[in-house]
Write a protein that binds this DNA or RNA. Structure first.
Length: 261
DNA sequence: ATGGCAAGCTAAGCTTGA
């Protein structure tokens, strides 16, 4: 089984590229972020014609997540509140950043973690609070589901080897100590970075800034991840970043990452 | 230190992204 994650930066702008990528890479599950469209306007049918079931949670202009799956999934839900309850979650489900479902016995959680704008900003503290909620959510799920695949755009560079020039970005949003610690607190629940099971070298990235010719210079960040619970991590046989869609005209600034079991 | 590019919304320029 292959599970891919891809921040497409608007599904309507990237529709044809996603179709063509799936034709070459018929993954079992594709998790999308930043679909940027309300559910009624989501272009479902071209993907259904490829054989995918589509599960979506979108909003106007911003955010939005979706899961495509060749086999039907069970227990689809979006947001934190289905697990944590509305009282705990408050307003944090207004932004559509989490959709989950079960396939075989694998519980897939597809995330679009807040960007955080700049360190110290209101959005930065929203990101940290969101990550605290995510930790609670995953702690709850790990009690019930031994096989968890938590994937998506985390907007966090886990370690210095995951960015081209850590020194000049060490205080940037995505690398700040509180963000990295929040991520580590989540991983300490018992989750493993699938990519790092197979590749220890630096220089492997999943996002490149549109500006300043970042991609041709490989000035990238690795911020799109699959985090696997221990029973599932033992079944992983590969995790690769496919840079090819980033080379196309009018690409997303992110490129797909694929884990295989 | 700053801007650089792209998408959405909406109809010129702002907001967001990371």
């Amino acid at each position: 089984m292959k599970i891919a994650t891809w921040n497409v930066n608007s599904i309507r702008s990237r529709q044809q590229q996603v179709i063509e990528w799936l034709q070459v890479n018929p993954v079992d599950v594709l998790c999308l972020q930043e679909t940027k469209v309300i559910d009624q306007d989501f272009p479902r049918s071209p993907f259904e014609q490829l054989g995918y079931h589509t599960y979506i949670s979108g909003q106007k202009s911003y955010n939005g997540v979706a899961i495509f799956s060749l086999s039907p999934m069970q227990n689809i839900s979006s947001g934190f509140s289905t697990i944590l309850g509305a009282d705990v979650v408050g307003d944090f489900d207004i932004q559509k950043r989490l959709i989950t479902g079960v396939i075989d016995d694998i519980h897939i959680i597809n995330l679009y973690v807040p960007n955080g704008a700049s360190v110290g900003s209101e959005k930065y503290y929203y990101k940290l609070d969101w990550l605290k909620l995510l930790r609670k959510y995953l702690e709850n799920l790990l009690d019930k589901s031994p096989k968890l695949c938590v994937c998506g755009d985390f907007n966090i560079v886990p370690e210095d080897r995951d960015i081209y020039n850590p020194e000049s970005h060490k205080n940037s949003v995505g690398l700040s100590k509180p963000e990295r610690e929040a991520l580590q607190e989540i991983l300490q629940l018992g989750l493993v970075d699938a990519f790092r099971q197979f590749t220890s070298a630096g220089g492997h990235y999943s996002w490149w800034d549109y500006r300043a010719a970042a991609f041709p210079h490989n000035h990238g960040w690795r911020i799109d991840h699959h985090y696997l619970s221990l029973p599932l991590s033992q079944k992983a046989i590969s995790c690769i970043i496919d840079q090819s869609p980033r080379k196309l005209a009018k690409p997303s600034d992110h490129t797909p990452v694929i884990v295989e079991f």
